[in-house]
Design a protein around this nucleic acid. Sequence first.
DNA 1: TTTTGAGTTGTTCGA
DNA 2: GTCGAACAACTCAAA
Length: 474
Amino acid sequence: MDTAIWWIRRDLRLSDNQALGAALTHGRYVLPVFILDPALWNSAYSGEKRRAFLLGGLHALDADLRRRGSHLIVLHGRPEEVLAHLCSATGATAVFAEADVSPYARRRDKKVAARCPLHLVGGLTLHPPEAVRKPDGGVYTVYTPYRRAWRALPMPDAREVLPAPPLIPTPPNLAITGELLPEAPALPSPIPFLPGEAEAQRRLRDFMAEKINTYATARDFMACAGTSELSPYLRFGMLSARQSAIAALQAHDAASTDAARESIVVWLDELIWREFYMSVLYHFPNVRHESFRAKLRAIEWVNDRAVFAAWQEGRTGYPVVDAAMRQLLATGWMHNRARMIVASFLAKHLLIDWRWGERHFMQHLIDGDPAANNGGWQWSAGTGTDAAPYFRIFNPLLQGEKYDPTGDYVRRWVPELARVPAAHLHHPWTMPAEVQREAGCIIGVDYPLPIVDHKWTYRRALAAYRQARDSSLW
DNA sequence: TTTTGAGTTGTTCGA
DNA sequence: GTCGAACAACTCAAA
């Protein structure tokens, strides 16, 4: 007659869910519970677009559960208190949840484990952070050897992917009914990701059938949908990493050309990067609040608030930067290459603390994940594990011309530049006055002049980083 | 223990 | 226009 609680956190799926599987095995009844934790909900690293996507996902999960004789129970409060109360009110003898890597999640789970029979299971990553180790037991801090070790571990067989259970028996006449799940708030513009597991499965299928074969080159062009756009689903576990990796390996076996096979390996690498950064955050939780490289903690940031606001709002005068920042505000998503361009620009050209940018991304990205976002920012700022060398500074003009050659990306997100000829699009300040009039875009009036001079700030960045490296004694 | 080779995604400068 | 070197040494992983 045992009841198990399935504590849902970032595993909003019924397919390939090890926590749900363990709860079903434990006893007769399973209680699916989601806790709206104010510490997370109201965090400075939270944001309305990601909250809306999560709420939508919870509604979808509830509907999926109801088709299986169950339903979602939503509770508000501190998880250790909510779960302790729930266990005693329902007589549940176990709580199953998917293990997480962030410092907050681990502190939270420790508190819960002190008061409830909590069992953490795998599933967030294909290989847990403890499993990918150097031969001497150490932790990798460089991607390539990490990847080698990751690939050397046995891969699960496709048959190990757990199917969605047809029935989830939930106790009748519950003493606890849960609270009303809030409606997803209306947003100024609709987010381009439909929340829920069904949509995640559909996207995975479509991507594996076609686009993954050209991913290696198509992924770099910001105007084209060459990336998988699966990140929000992986972020909330509407899709498991294991199922995604196995699907990619199957596509690899079925691919007919070397180019397609190489492309698939490049995509699989991105999944491994995701696990690498989760491992980094797990083993080095301090990266959440400081640079991994101690020497680069001494960088003297300029941290100009007005300049930061211009970056946030897409008013820097660098079209590709502004397009990307406006895409983020409007949609809650940004193209991967654009993320690197704007991150490099903030840390290097503007000399603004990468943590400011990290927080802004977390406030707006639907796929905002503490590990991946922190890893990406520290990589771009040159302060992280296996980071870009500090002298690797993206030139926003060259990046724009290379990866948005038609200018479609800029035109889409910076409409005041829509009629600027392609020859000037990535450096509109070079337009002769007559061309500006014809394009209906007077630089300095309709669109800002560049907020900083590239050449000068390029050199300033090199100097600031060099100084940090040389000045610190440790 | 020491040595050796290698390291996501770039840019600039001068020959 | 194309090429290689410099950016700057450094740290990590593995033999």
